[in-house]
Design a protein around this nucleic acid. Structure first.
Lengths: 338, 338
DNA sequence: GATATCAACTTAAACGTTTAAGGCCGTGCA
DNA sequence: TGCACGGCCTTAAACGTTTAAGTTGATATC
């Protein structure tokens, strides 16, 4: 690999001049400029990123932690997210450095990456209330942005998908179709996203003048089996009480509910309406296809990177806290008007 | 951030001694060793990765290109793959640097990353015959390993999942269940993985003494709609000719076929047996759950990283070309013996 | 007692950039 | 003629490590 010294020698100038020409950072006469350019071209010179980084004291790398454990049901939304993250970062001369950590050693891993100079910033996903990572990074004032919110009092840059609004729209959609008894299958209370989505359900019922029935709310962890059990419980209720529609906090749980409906000899979209959340890749190919809420992940990633670049340049942020509404995608599982 | 000079000053020694202590690379008396360690601890010293990299002329980063375009149906298998890749690489002191490129500028992007010293090696996925990336990296002798094969004559380190063996097992499974007319839904001829899987189908038929019927083979690009169309064509054949089982080259196409079966008023696993390939996350929650072939992605990633580390150390490779058999996971879609 | 040997440490160069500071030369002006 | 100024270029330091080579002083060897 040719270095800047080689180029300088061939062009008959100093390394400083070469650097000035290549970075347009200082006036150079046209004739020497051409000589330098020619020499660089001839030698196939490429500046060493590492040397440049050492000098500038930066890595131009953005850290992103892989979500959850490797073997669990993967999260297609986050998979798309990091993909978009990477392509947006590149447009600003940054790359994504992925890393893993356990819930226990999270802070140690973040600290290591910072102190050794591995990364210039982080993108945090799967945030939660009292998120230690956010607390920590805020505390030491290290650049980061988050996909998701945390404590309302914490003022940090984030972009989030408005789960409340999404489920509100989905529930309203069910109301419009004529449903009076709408159930909700959710996650245990206490999760940021889960509580938000649940709030959308409640508000929609209220706005529609429908009474809230706690028996129609079932909760459990984020698995298909949970959705299945919940739907069995709901549909086992006596006619006249039994819900005619189910809003699920996620596609995974909606799919479990759809299985239950099948198992009970009914059909989603005809006997019971079902809506999910996330619009995971296969939902449109289910039988029946699942009505869901698409998270505009591309927008989220783009906005986040824009914000992060501004943070890294110490520029003021036009928007520090962004909420983007998901898009309701109506398919057969929510059925026709009754 | 404290530097090695600060530590040296506090410990009252030279930077060289500090380095020797920290890297155990040169004998140092126990008393100075302790002084240095104490000073480093007190200052919270962490060596700068970038400075170290400049000195060693390496980046300790492994490049991995994001598959396909961002918005297409994502490939869950590759999403899992990169996740495992990251966690295995970390155990050897490397990180994954993700990047994107179009089919057109692939070589330019790879060249850039190499010449600027961004990465020390690559992991290539979605390989194919006459793969320009492999051809290029072989040519310039830059370290890499591949998930997937290419030209038989090319001697480069790879790990692949044995698609032929997998589909062979799946087809044999259908034969064992009593099926005589087994169809195959595949990709267009000419793709590495597709042709291999097809070969497994053919060999299994042969070994079972079943005659090969070209009418029972339908091909098209990797989409659910293709599987759907193919199944419609197959099941529209007259009874007595019509296949009783379908082996699909991928889950996506199998899912399309299952939809077709539903649309025709039949049921997969009862009227027609279906098997897929990949065991994508939701297959087990379909109605009926889909019989599929699980790719042991964790093993693939681990082996690949092991091989790559050996390549980077210029150590001879114990195994240069590894084939791993996928695991048949039998579910309801392939039905009971008839 | 001179010399060789060795352990333990230091010096200083090197990795490949960027950039502040300084030098040189020609021009314009008094 | 002398001086200030500006354009263009060079010098050299700096970023934070690692490590080959050199230095020192003590001990062993004859």
């Amino acid at each position: 690999m040719a270095t800047i010294k080689d180029v300088a020698k061939v062009a008959g100038v100093s390394t400083a001049t070469v650097s000035y020409v290549l970075n347009n950072s200082f006036p150079v006469s046209e004739t020497t400029r051409q000589r330098v350019l020619e020499a660089a071209r001839k030698l196939g010179y490429r500046p060493s990123i590492i040397a440049r980084n050492l000098r500038a004291n930066e890595s131009r790398l953005i850290g992103y932690a892989w979500h959850g454990t490797v073997d669990s049901e993967t999260n297609p939304v986050l998979d798309q997210f990091i993909h978009h993250l990477a392509s947006n970062a590149e447009q600003h001369g940054y790359h994504i450095l992925t890393f893993t950590h356990t819930p226990e050693n999270a802070l140690k891993v973040y600290t290591d990456l910072i102190e050794t100079g591995h990364v210039d910033a982080f993108v945090i996903a799967e945030t939660n209330v009292n998120d230690v990572r956010i607390d920590f990074l805020r505390d030491i004032d290290f650049p980061f942005v988050a996909f998701g919110r945390a404590n309302p009092g914490w003022n940090f840059p984030y972009v989030d998908v408005d789960g409340k609004k999404g489920v509100y729209e989905a529930t309203k959609h069910l109301v419009t179709l004529g449903h009076q008894r709408i159930a909700f299958i959710g996650w245990p209370e206490g999760s940021m996203a889960g509580d938000n989505r649940y709030a959308g359900y409640c508000t929609a019922l209220q706005d529609a003048g429908l009474s809230f029935n706690p028996d129609l709310v079932k909760r459990g962890e984020h698995r298909t089996a949970t959705g299945n059990r919940a739907a069995h419980a709901l549909l086992g209720m006596p006619t006249g009480v039994r819900p005619t529609a189910i809003a699920a906090v996620s596609d995974l749980m909606a799919i479990g509910a759809m299985s239950a409906i099948e198992q009970l000899g009914m059909r989603a979209g005809r006997d019971v309406a079902v809506v999910g959340f996330d619009n995971v890749p296969l939902t449109e190919h289910l039988q029946p296809p699942l009505t869901s809420l698409r998270q505009p992940i591309d927008q989220v990633a783009r906005k986040l990177i824009e914000m992060l670049i501004a943070v890294l340049k110490n520029e003021p942020l036009a928007e520090r806290q962004v909420l983007i509404a998901p898009e309701l995608i109506v398919r057969a599982s929510s059925g026709a008007p009754r």
